[in-house]
Design a protein around this nucleic acid. Sequence first.
DNA 1: GCCTTTTGTGTTATTATATAACATGTCGAT
DNA 2: ATCGACATGTTATATAATAACACAAAAGGC
Lengths: 165, 165
Amino acid sequence: MTSPTHQDGFCCAAHSGSDSMAAILETAETRARVQGARLTPVRRRTLEILLQAHGALGAYEVLEKLAAEGYGTQPPVAYRALNFLVEHGLAHRIRRLNAFTACAQPDHDHRAAFLICETCNSVTEADADLLCRALDQAAQAAGFQLDRATIEAVGQCRACQDAPE
Amino acid sequence: MTSPTHQDGFCCAAHSGSDSMAAILETAETRARVQGARLTPVRRRTLEILLQAHGALGAYEVLEKLAAEGYGTQPPVAYRALNFLVEHGLAHRIRRLNAFTACAQPDHDHRAAFLICETCNSVTEADADLLCRALDQAAQAAGFQLDRATIEAVGQCRACQDAPE
DNA sequence: GCCTTTTGTGTTATTATATAACATGTCGAT
DNA sequence: ATCGACATGTTATATAATAACACAAAAGGC
């Protein structure tokens, strides 16, 4: 993906800060252990792959990379690692894209919304605590008890707005 | 689907009002014509199927019903009709379920959020105009220009909260 | 340490979801 | 009546996800 978005800090974790990736992995390791789970090699590597990716990756894209590095070659290998990461708050599933992205703030539990750029396919994570509160109110008005929510916005990221069409 | 949700008006259009289905079809017909599109037999029937359904239906479930009634038997038949309905504001796609549901308010353009019951799989449409405004603000703060959004909540509907587990 | 249980990794096979590409048919305007 | 645009149907294929099983490695009791 040769995208025009890698000029500022909004594209992906790998380009957002100098050592953010290492820091995130560290946090992830800790977080998993606290939850009584193990960040095994495949899982860790899967998280790295997501962190290095520009935008979200499909399960089969992740699988391809894992396979190339000597891990298993079959779909469940990728799906299991990805699901593990999602369940432990280290990654998110982007349903509109049938894809996964590393969590930008794995250090604390949070509600996230995703801003998906139609032009360059980048995915930005935005805080959705407020939104979820509003959603919860709307749900309660309908007698619905909210557990969790998916909020995905589609549009144009900053870089792609600026860039000529 | 023998669900415990059909005691009140929150399950599906078919059970929500006395003649709401006929009224909705009427509205749909008009709306399509206004947009320069035709609500052909397959499309109309597809909408009816969605309206009669409890909860959302997968494309292949719709296809099965269409096929049984003498329409085409292959996936594109269902997908085309469903996509038509979605594009013309007569139905919604529920991404979390890989399914479709009839629009509850086809008479006016609106933003919708969906409340998906984990227990009985019912899908309730809720107004999301306010939510979308809030989302737009959050997006703008990130320099993102919002076009449209998917908001899907997962939890328990009223009936399933009341019902013993 | 050794055994048992649990968890994790890998496989093969299958299911589910969705689209591409093309042939034929129908509507509606001229 | 004929032309162009839109609709419908097909076959074939792409893409996404899971089920079921065999084996391996780690964790915990004793």
